[in-house]
Design a binder for these strands. Sequence first.
DNA 1: TGATGCGTTGCAAATATTGCAACGATCGTT
DNA 2: AACGATCGTTGCAATATTTGCAACGCATCA
Lengths: 254, 254
Amino acid sequence: MSQTVDRALSILPLLAEGPADLGRVADRLGVHKSTALRLLRTLHEHGFVYRQSDQHYRLGARLIALAQEAMENLDVREIAHPHLIRLNEQCGHTVHLAVHEENEVLYIDKVESRYPVRMYSRIGKPVAITVAAVAKLLLADLPENERRAVAEKLDYPLYTARSTPNADGFLKELAKVREQGWATDLGGHEESINCVAAPIRGADGRVTAAMSVSAPNVVVTADELLTLLPLVRRTADAISGEYSGRTPVKEVTA
Amino acid sequence: MSQTVDRALSILPLLAEGPADLGRVADRLGVHKSTALRLLRTLHEHGFVYRQSDQHYRLGARLIALAQEAMENLDVREIAHPHLIRLNEQCGHTVHLAVHEENEVLYIDKVESRYPVRMYSRIGKPVAITVAAVAKLLLADLPENERRAVAEKLDYPLYTARSTPNADGFLKELAKVREQGWATDLGGHEESINCVAAPIRGADGRVTAAMSVSAPNVVVTADELLTLLPLVRRTADAISGEYSGRTPVKEVTA
DNA sequence: TGATGCGTTGCAAATATTGCAACGATCGTT
DNA sequence: AACGATCGTTGCAATATTTGCAACGCATCA
């Protein structure tokens, strides 16, 4: 909507690919070098980009600090974190916390598996929305019309043979998930990785976040993972309780 | 340098303080509501801000994803991380990794103490540059004139009685640190917290990062912490070796 | 030494941004 | 139920801001 800002912001993802020099930025933006220079300077003043010694620009520190603050503002995360840790201590697998935002579902917290074989994921990274267990939970909670609208707008990449193939299949899956109050992803994203997930609800009963336990086949079979479901659900409920203010939070001062 | 972009970027730190509505943003920026609206829209399109259900704006997900990518681009971090973990396993204390950027020194990685009493710090947060051990190492490596220039521009807040009081004292400390090749912060930031730090050098011998071990008095005395110095230096040297390409890195495929 | 490539600056043209004023919707009050 | 207030939103005209150009300085390299 604002051309100048639009161009400036486009520089950031570009630099995320790796450091670039002025010419490269100008080319990628399709603007004159002088224009790119002035945009970069403004970004620089705000600390969003950093000019390294070889004159190449890269993403700056303020960005990292801001993101950190953004995450601290997500109070679900604050509340959930100790629970995630405890769950990880109990089962040993990777534990994720995810929220739905702007047609994306993204991880906002993660506790690494204690097994040597781990799944790859990254905080802040959008998840495979059509197959991830947490995504199903978050989308399943939307009102029916929104759910349909979202489902039809999505792409359905066939990561594996068990990936959700299309909008119809996805909507059916969401209905099921909504019904049963938990979700799984059995090899729908990575052939050998399974997940069990449970919803976290706010005071209004809406699903505001979802958490999951993920483990590769080589560590536990899907069936074994499913035996953890009650534990996952209990944990999610405990978080819901605190988050919605029903459960008093025990203050622990360091 | 570019007014529009400048204004747009100013919105982000503002939102980092907490969600705000249009009026508030406009006020803080000192612009008309319609202007603020258009800026917010542009930020929104890029996913930098998110409009929550109550019409308040907050920092968006793309910011988190970008920051994560920015950190992954810092390859010192990649290389150092397993070493930090190992060091933490050996000593149990909080381990930090920091770099110098744009007149700030900031943490880019952290492994939490395994003791119940922990120090507060945050990845992405600028450190107390005049007292932190890692900051001393990073600044001590600058050429003499730059060092002086930086030292004179800084403020010297008296966090504690042992904080560096002024530029002269700081430069003397830097000279000492430069000489001995390691640094400490003994209660200069928080009365009860001590740190030992060692430099990480790139192929050119310049200090590109610094790492530290921090622990509160109640866990170990300053003297006890200092006995860890050889271990910290060995770890830092190991990272330097890998980072500068001297030590072959053992590829570990998950 | 000359040539090429890069970042940088002043300037005038023109485009994009701004603030205004009016509208519509939502919410709380009388 | 109607009214008033508050807040977000849009079209428009004025103008300030941004843009691309061309020229310059500086480095590197042949």
